[in-house]
Simulated scan of single mutants.
Amino acid sequence: MAPPALSLPPRPVIGILHPGAMGAAIGSALKPRAGAVVWADAGRSHATAKRAELADLVAVPDVAELARRSHVIVSICPPHAAREVAGLVGAALADRTDRPLYVEANAIAPDSVRGIATLLGDRATVCDGAVIGPPAWDRGTTVLWLSGPGADTAAALFEGSPFDARVLATGPADVGTASGLKACFALQSKALPTLWLALEEAAARFGVTEALHGELDRTGSAYAGALADVRATAAAKGWRWAGEMEEAADALAAIGVPDGFSRAAAELYRRASDGG
């Protein structure tokens, strides 16, 4: 039997799991079209609560309550937590008769997204999402790519917001397409910059740092700025980007593309975040 058609009220309740920097921006962007934008308070940090407050989001006690109340649920959390969050949502949806729209917007592999869709089964309509760009408070910086069932519905919620929502495809088999795009883009946005970290570490171990810098200067490479940028970013976000790079590597391996670039980037981000 075919699943029931997705139907949302004119101003749906939208749940954000969780309002980190990106989640808070997404929640704020959705407010004009929502009856309420809610977040789950249990176990979250003071910093998260402050971001939610500044974005004018409404706190509910926990994930279960959020899942029971929301017509749309946006999962935007560290990659390693994506399946756990989906499991908590799925358990809370067991007694619901309607199917909320679950936008899986985490930086995870297509197979991971499809696994979450299988986990949620007929309890939710799962739409694949991929954010490319920073947390958006103004238009022109960030695109939210969507694919799979409910993609058009999700995109409409962002109309006129700082997030430029674009639909790739809308069929059930298209769950994972947006995440595939994200994995490809991450090769240049997150994996490629870590070459500077590897280059600098290798030069130091060979004892040729000064000579290498001289050659880079002589050949016109803008290494100093690039290295400073990736060091700062890795120190601040390496703990999260390591997981994203592992997921990107899984995505590449699944289609027979060499995944070593992303695996190496994951290790370099781990070292940087650990102070190594």
Rank of each mutant, 00 (worst) to 15 (best):
A2W: 09
P3D: 08
P4Y: 00
P9I: 07
P10L: 08
G15K: 03
G15F: 02
I16S: 01
G23Q: 02
K31M: 09
R33Q: 12
A34M: 00
V37S: 05
W39E: 01
D41G: 03
D41Q: 15
D41N: 10
A47K: 12
A52S: 10
D56C: 14
L57V: 11
V58D: 13
A64M: 04
V72A: 05
S75Q: 04
I76Y: 03
A81R: 08
A82Q: 10
L88M: 13
R96N: 01
R96V: 05
R96T: 04
A109C: 09
P110S: 06
D111F: 05
D111R: 13
R114V: 04
T118S: 14
C127V: 12
G129C: 04
V131E: 02
P135K: 05
A136I: 01
D138F: 12
R139F: 08
A151E: 00
A154V: 05
E159A: 15
G160F: 09
A165T: 07
L168F: 12
G171K: 10
A173S: 14
A178Q: 01
S179G: 13
K182L: 07
A186H: 03
S189I: 13
A191T: 11
L199R: 09
E200D: 15
E201P: 00
R205N: 12
T209Y: 00
T209E: 14
T209K: 00
A211V: 10
E215K: 04
G220K: 09
A222I: 06
A232M: 07
T233F: 13
A234R: 02
K237N: 15
E244M: 13
M245N: 07
M245S: 08
E247W: 06
A251W: 03
V257W: 02
D259G: 11
G260Y: 07
F261K: 12
R263E: 06
A264N: 13
A265R: 09
E267Q: 15
L268V: 03
Y269I: 10
S273I: 02
G275M: 05
G276Q: 12
